[in-house]
Design a protein around this nucleic acid. Structure first.
Lengths: 232, 232
DNA sequence: CGTACCTTTGATGTGAATCAAGAGTAGTGG
DNA sequence: CCACTACTCTTGATTCACATCAAAGGTACG
């Protein structure tokens, strides 16, 4: 399924964070990072664990979530290939505020604290990229807070679908788009702060209005324009 | 009320971000930053404006919030002296995701993009501090998401009160504490994602249970331990 | 001392959760 | 290939936490 031979330098050098690093810097990274395989359902770290570096997804899918006393959990983020996580926590002496679990069998790279700190010391451009990465995360989190705070459940679902449109520039994109949900509906429901039941009902209603068609994980947006106007 | 003569180098050098900067670096900053006075109710920037740097609160109080179509708004953060905001947005070509407004007459310092980028270029320690600052913000935002997602309104209020206890180490702090709310109850309600009515009722209920006493902005926590156990 | 805003209190409404079954759908092993 | 099991997803009935609406104090400030 996946190539057994991993070209780690290539993987690393294609990450936004490391894109303009010199070959010798990439080489240093390569020796410093460790592969970590994670089976579906396996826990990478628990909320409260002490972080020692950050992770990059090579392939697979990871969810970050809060556990909750009542057994249910709240998914914060769903990560795919080439995304990284756990950077922020390196710069503070604090435990992970979320736990990480494989949604499918996955391969990660782990890059230790000290490696990052050394790079930071030497390369101002790397620092800039790191700052840019954190800023991006901050923004998407702020956006999440906005969404949870002042949009209804249906609006959150519509927003999610529109975000996952192949292209969403405000040109004349009136046609229909196909979306394939990246994971199960219950995980997506949690990501959107909904129960699975509510998500199901919203998909039902949107289908009834002819705005979308749902078939398993395949969702067709029949009319992007009308869907976008759904925001009351 | 406030000293007219501002010792800007001293203000700057006491900020966490700039704490270990050399005197000449502080001096450079001083010439590069601009004072900005903001009256109560005055808008510093709107959501959607283009950022040109970041701000430090010298004195006063600023709120960051999302506007909403129905006139109500959602307060994201309430900032006081020595706190800064708008750093994240410098590292991305994106407009402000929130607006900023003075809750009282305030004085801010504005530090431009280029100044920061130059510092970043020269001083790895500064980069570290900047990263630490952003990480902290990221964490508190993650904590907010957790709070909004899986805690009831009363739990959010209790959490807020406990966070604002003078000392909250899990030692034998059973006594009572006095808290002075930093601003009006409606702003705090919005910060906690509540309506003012709901916040008022929760204060009422907690008072009825003898857990707290409310008198205007003065709140006495009668029994920290019992309040902490309030989490169902 | 009056006007404007903040806060409280009560009555009512509602969006989404919860509870409870049933209907797909997918892996597992004989 | 088909039964067996275990989820995931849907659908309906009901509940509940919190918002909304409405109106009456309080409080601050010009």
């Amino acid at each position: 399924m996946h190539e057994n031979r991993l070209d780690i330098p290539q993987i690393l050098s294609r990450l936004p964070l490391f894109q303009e690093l010199a070959p010798d810097q990439i080489a240093a990274l390569e020796t410093a990072c460790r592969e970590r395989r994670l089976a579906k359902g396996e826990m990478l770290f628990q909320k409260g664990d002490a972080p020692k570096g950050f992770f990059v997804v090579v392939f697979g899918q990871i969810k970050l979530a809060f556990p909750s006393s009542q057994g249910n959990e709240k998914v914060v983020q769903i990560l795919g290939p080439r995304q990284c996580f756990g950077e922020a926590v390196m710069f503070m002496d604090r435990p992970y505020p979320v736990f990480a679990e494989g949604l499918v069998d996955s391969l990660l790279l782990h890059i230790g604290n000290t490696t990052v700190f050394e790079l930071l010391e030497r390369d101002p451009l790397f620092a800039r990229r790191m700052l840019a990465g954190l800023s991006l995360r901050l923004h998407s989190l702020v956006h999440d807070v906005e969404t949870y705070s002042l949009r209804s459940s249906a609006q959150r679902v519509v927003g999610y679908l529109l975000q996952h449109c192949p292209q969403q520039d405000d040109g004349p994109c009136e046609g229909s788009f196909d979306i394939s949900l990246p994971t199960s509906k219950q995980v997506i429901a949690s990501r959107l702060n909904l129960t699975p039941e509510t998500l199901s009902r919203i998909f039902h209603d949107l289908s009834a209005d002819g705005l979308i068609s749902v078939s398993g994980k395949q969702i067709t947006i029949n009319n992007v324009k009308r869907l976008r106007e759904f925001d009351l």
